[in-house]
Structure formats: structure tokens, C-alpha cells
């Protein structure tokens, strides 16, 4: 394989891992618990900024970018911190929005939250360097390992895979445990769950925080790989791609969601890279978004349960008497 192809394929694999992780986190919130988190990308961004700031070193040493705090922490700490910040931000936002609000109000409030977040990140330049974003984020362990560029790429693929496995074991454990059963009960019938003594708001908040932590980790893995992060790259449309991936893959099914993450953000969006350029620059991008929207509509109409539907759970009838 030529070096260029190795670069391309290894990069795609990292993107795939990030998307799969992000979809699992969103699936925990939306697919399993039924929270319409249209601000999901904000929590991914929060994780990415955290990881970037904790690897870039103190802000005062940088001439061209300004950010709050700054440290030079060794490899796994920035990623763990990103997860923690994602969870913490989710806790704050969730406390505000998950209380007593209807599903559609929640969806709308999430849209507003994402707009506020983009506004603040863009305009408060000393926070995370405004609309220019952060760049030149050092790659983890690159100095310790001393690999050439191509081998480092493959190392990062392996790293992403390991994190993916950890995240999978986590979401798998959550969804198959009694906790997962409670979350699904809340999704399917909030009032019945409440009648059985489940504190609906608390469980929603828990799922929201766990999903936010995963979002933060996925953002950290992405930013440590590509090295830059700017607010222009996280609009509600990006979240919609993840929603589409979950719908296509199979809402509520971790395996299906992973397949969806392969099909929509990776295969569907990467395939157009090989199209010959037509029209003005940006025409293909616009048509691509049209196609993603049509894909979501097609699946919602024809296969609303996705490629790999959520397993229908059966329970034995209690013995009579």
C-alpha cells in the first residue's frame, strides 16, 4: 500500500472510531433514554477543548493563540479530563433542561444551548481563541514513541480502537443492566416508570451525564489526532449526522449504532470525496446535506427501527398464584 493510501485509510479508521464512540454516547441519551439532545456536539466540543488546553501547555507561552488555563499533562490525563468535563457540563445543562420540560421543549432548549455555546466560544476570544480555534495540539506520546509519521498513524488507530472497546464495554454493561432496563422504561412510558417508583428526572440526568462523558472522550480523541478545533465545525447539522447514523443503524442497539456510524458519517460522507468536482465549490457539500436529510427521511419512513433493530425483550410471565 502506498504511503498516501496508508495515511488516508488510517485517518478514516480514526474518524470511524470517533464517530462510533460519539454515536454510542448519543444512543445512550436518545436511543435508550429518549432525550433529544440536539446540543450533543457541544459536549464533544467541550471535551476537545479540554484535551487541547491540557496538552498545549500554558497559554502565556503561546504567541498566536489565547486560551484559559493551559497545562502540559502526560497522555491519558487530558482524555480522562475531557470525559470529566463532558460529564460536568452535561450535569449543569441537564439540571436546567431535563426538569419537568416536555420532549419538544427539551429539543428546543438544546438547540438554544448549542447556539449560546457557539456564541460564547466565538466571541470570548480569551477563552478558547475565538473563531480561529485552537491549533497545533501536540499528538500524544509522539515524542516518547519516536515513530515515523505513517507508523504513528497506525499507532493512533490502535489507541482509538482500545478506547472504543472500553467505551463499548461500558455502554454494553449499562444497556444490559437493570439500569438500562429502567432507562428504556422511561423512554417507552415515562408515567409507568414513575408509577413504579423510578425517579424519572434523576435517571434521565444520569443517562445524560454518561452520554456527555462519552461525547467528551470522543472529542478528545479527535482533537489529539487532527490537532485543531474551531467553533465553525460544530453546528446542529453535525449533531444531525449522528442522529441519522443512529436511526439508520438501529435506535437503541449498540451494535446497530456502530454500523450506522460506519454507513452514514464514514461511507456516505467519504464516498463523495471521490466524485469529480462539479459546479461551484460548495455545491457538492450542499447536495451531500440534502442527501443526508433524505436518507434520514427514507429510514424513518421505511425502516424506522434501523438496519439492526433493537432486540425485542421478552420476559417470562410470573407464575400464577
Amino acid at each position: 500500500m502506498s504511503i498516501a493510501w496508508q495515511f488516508y485509510i488510517s485517518s478514516i479508521l480514526v474518524y470511524l472510531g470517533v464517530d462510533v464512540m460519539a454515536c454510542w454516547g448519543l444512543n445512550l441519551q436518545f436511543g435508550v433514554t429518549g432525550i433529544m439532545n440536539f446540543a450533543y456536539i457541544v459536549f464533544q466540543a467541550a471535551g476537545a477543548y479540554t484535551a487541547a488546553i491540557l496538552t498545549l501547555g500554558p497559554s502565556s507561552r503561546s504567541l498566536f493563540q489565547h486560551y484559559i488555563g493551559g497545562a502540559n499533562l502526560p497522555f491519558p490525563i487530558p482524555i480522562i479530563a475531557a470525559g470529566a468535563v463532558g460529564a460536568l457540563l452535561s450535569l449543569v445543562v441537564g439540571t436546567f433542561t431535563l426538569r419537568r420540560l416536555r420532549v419538544d421543549y427539551q429539543a428546543m432548549v438544546m438547540l438554544i444551548v448549542s447556539l449560546i455555546a457557539i456564541n460564547v466560544a466565538t466571541n470570548q476570544v480569551d477563552l478558547v481563541n475565538g473563531s480561529a480555534g485552537l491549533s497545533l495540539v501536540p499528538k500524544p506520546l509522539s515524542q516518547v514513541l519516536n515513530l515515523d509519521l505513517v507508523n504513528y498513524q497506525w499507532f493512533y488507530v490502535a489507541l482509538t480502537a482500545v478506547v472504543c472497546v472500553i467505551v463499548f464495554l461500558f455502554v454494553h454493561q449499562v444497556t444490559r443492566s437493570p439500569l438500562g432496563r429502567t432507562l428504556r422504561a422511561i423512554r417507552d412510558n415515562e408515567h409507568s416508570a414513575a408509577a413504579l417508583g423510578k425517579n424519572v428526572t434523576r435517571f434521565r440526568l444520569l443517562a445524560f451525564v454518561l452520554g456527555g462523558a462519552i461525547a467528551g472522550v470522543s472529542g478528545a480523541i479527535l482533537v489529539e489526532f487532527i490537532g485543531t478545533w474551531a467553533p465553525g465545525s460544530w453546528t446542529y447539522a453535525e449533531t444531525f449526522v449522528l442522529f441519522t447514523a443512529i436511526i439508520v443503524g438501529g435506535t437503541g442497539n449498540n451494535l446497530g449504532v456502530a454500523v450506522g456510524a460506519l454507513l452514514v458519517p464514514v461511507v456516505f460522507l467519504e464516498a463523495t470525496r471521490f466524485l469529480p468536482p462539479i459546479g461551484y465549490p460548495g455545491l457538492i457539500d450542499a447536495l451531500q446535506w440534502v442527501a443526508v436529510g433524505l436518507l434520514a427521511l427514507l429510514f424513518l419512513w421505511r425502516w424506522p427501527r434501523g438496519v439492526i433493530p433493537e432486540r425485542r425483550r421478552r420476559f417470562r410471565k410470573p407464575a400464577p398464584g
Partner: peptide
């Protein structure tokens, strides 16, 4: 919840269709 996603998908289609 599904209808909200249909409306969001349509919004994206209209917006980008107009841009195209």
C-alpha cells in the same frame, strides 16, 4: 420525537437545496 426529526431533516434539505 420522530416528527421533530422529520422536520429537522426537511429543514436541512430545504436550506441546502436552496444553496445548491
Amino acid at each position: 420525537a420522530g416528527i421533530i426529526q422529520v422536520t429537522l431533516a426537511l429543514g436541512l434539505i430545504l436550506e441546502n437545496g436552496l444553496q445548491a
